[in-house]
């Protein structure tokens, strides 16, 4: 880096070196060489001292990352990024993405739907099928086909 001063630097080169000095990119030897070269350029020497002493522009906009922790604007951007990405996916990938994200909910919905369908079907079957008479008035003794009548008689007598 010190060989920058081996030849006499042009004015523009000196401006760049002043800039590097302000950015902290020069070694102490290079700064010494620059300062001695600037003695031949009083206007640039003045600029050099002004710029070295100038407040850092970075101070004008502080790093406030901490204030954005869990910020709603970030959540909004994240949701927007996700929605936009999903909206531009081919149908198969979108289906897969949605299934992946809502796997539990989809399982529960399918399970619930199957259960409800089964219940409805079984109810319909119960109500639509007539119960055969012999399932109510059944024979107690298969060898005696008239025994159920005796039972009914007894029941009526008890009443």
């Amino acid at each position: 880096m010190t060989n920058r001063f081996e030849h006499k630097p042009e004015r523009e080169e000196l401006e760049r070196l002043i800039n590097d000095a302000v950015d902290g990119l020069l070694s102490s030897a290079e700064i010494k060489a620059l300062e001695s070269e600037l003695a031949n350029h009083p206007d640039l020497q003045k600029d050099y001292h002004t710029l070295i002493a100038m407040p850092n522009p970075a101070n004008a906009f502080s790093d406030d990352s901490d204030t954005f922790r869990d910020d709603r604007r970030i959540r909004h951007i994240q949701a927007m990024v996700r929605d936009e990405y999903e909206a531009n996916q081919p149908l198969e990938e979108l289906t897969f993405l949605l299934l992946k994200r809502y796997a539990l909910a989809v399982s529960l919905v399918i399970f619930g739907a199957i259960s409800i369908t089964n219940i409805i079907f079984s109810l319909e079957q119960d109500s639509s099928e007539e119960i055969p008479l012999n399932e109510i008035f059944y024979n107690v003794n298969a060898d005696d086909p008239g025994e159920y009548l005796i039972y009914l008689d007894q029941w009526m007598m008890e009443d």
């Binding site: 790093d63 406030d64 990352s65 954005f68 922790r69 910020d71 970030i74 951007i77 994240q78």
Partner: peptide
């Protein structure tokens, strides 16, 4: 990485 990129 949005929470890191956004504030900067």
């Amino acid at each position: 990485e949005t929470p890191q990129l956004y504030p900067r």
